[in-house]
């Protein structure tokens, strides 16, 4: 009887613990999982299922330093496309990425996915952030 009571309390604690995730964590998970779907539809053909890119034609998404240095410009890259020479993972790329006019919320989700996959770890990129960044596109 005593054992049963202890078991019940233990299960209760686990349930409470699991439901105690902060709002931030829940938001991150929501963005991340929705972002993986956006990635599959809009990005994966070119950038690859592991963000590996394609030789010297399409840059990989595995260069965390590049992503961090260009964090504020990433939303603009998606919305307006990207042209001109860039150096990613120590290699030069100068082919064109086409513009993809998706909703700012989708941009936020897919950026959260990309910047937290393939060895990257940058936390949530929020809708608020994306909207601000889009105002300052070059």
């Amino acid at each position: 009887m005593k054992l049963k009571a202890i078991g019940a309390i233990a299960i209760l604690l686990i349930v409470i613990g699991a439901s105690c995730q902060s709002d931030d964590q829940i938001e991150f998970k929501r963005y991340y999982s929705a972002g993986s779907l956006v990635y599959q539809q809009h990005c994966q053909n070119c950038h690859g299922d592991k963000g590996q890119g394609l030789s010297s034609l399409i840059p990989p998404l595995t260069d965390s330093t590049y992503l961090k240095n260009n964090k504020a410009a990433l939303a603009c890259f998606i919305k307006n496309g990207l042209k001109g020479k860039i150096t990613v993972a120590g290699r030069a790329f100068d082919d064109e990425m086409q513009a993809d006019d998706i909703a700012p919320l989708e941009i936020a989700k897919v950026l959260t996915y990309v910047t937290n996959s393939f060895g990257n770890k940058m936390g949530t990129i929020t809708l608020q952030q994306v909207q601000n960044d889009l105002k300052n596109c070059k």
Binding site: N45, C46, G48, Q52, L54, S55, L57, I58, Q98
Partner: peptide, 13 residues
Amino acid sequence: CPSICPVMHRNML
């Protein structure tokens, strides 16, 4: 080609 060609040639490699 922005759609299937990069996938095809990643595989053809």
